[in-house]
Amino acid sequence: MKKHDLFIIVAAVFIIALSFLLIKGKNGATLTVKENNKTVYVGSIYKDKNIKLQNNTLIIKDGFVYMKSANCKNNICVHTGKIHKKGESIICLPNKVIAQIE
């Protein structure tokens, strides 16, 4: 072992610690689903779940949330795609559904 190896070890520990911290911070993300102004679901986005709403189906999988189906004509919420970042949302206006990550 040479003296400079310490730099690599310190850098490796730094990367590992940083990645642990980043993921821990992201883990706090929760999904709130509102339907007709009532909160119908609050939960982590890292717990896979199929949420059946009155007219929509919302899927939580591997930290991503997406609207699988909706009975409205335009399907804007379905086309929103997958969301996973804080502050992102899927909104279905015809059915008054708001799914937001906090």
């Binding site: 072992m1 040479k2 400079h4 190896d5 730099f7 690599i8 070890i9 850098a11 490796a12 990367i15």
Partner: peptide, 19 residues
């Protein structure tokens, strides 16, 4: 690249390589 600098041993170089 790290080995070319001549500053690190096989262990240090390998840790960086593994990551």
């Amino acid at each position: 690249l790290l080995n070319k600098t001549g500053l690190f041993s096989a262990v240090g170089v390998s840790i960086a390589g593994g990551v």
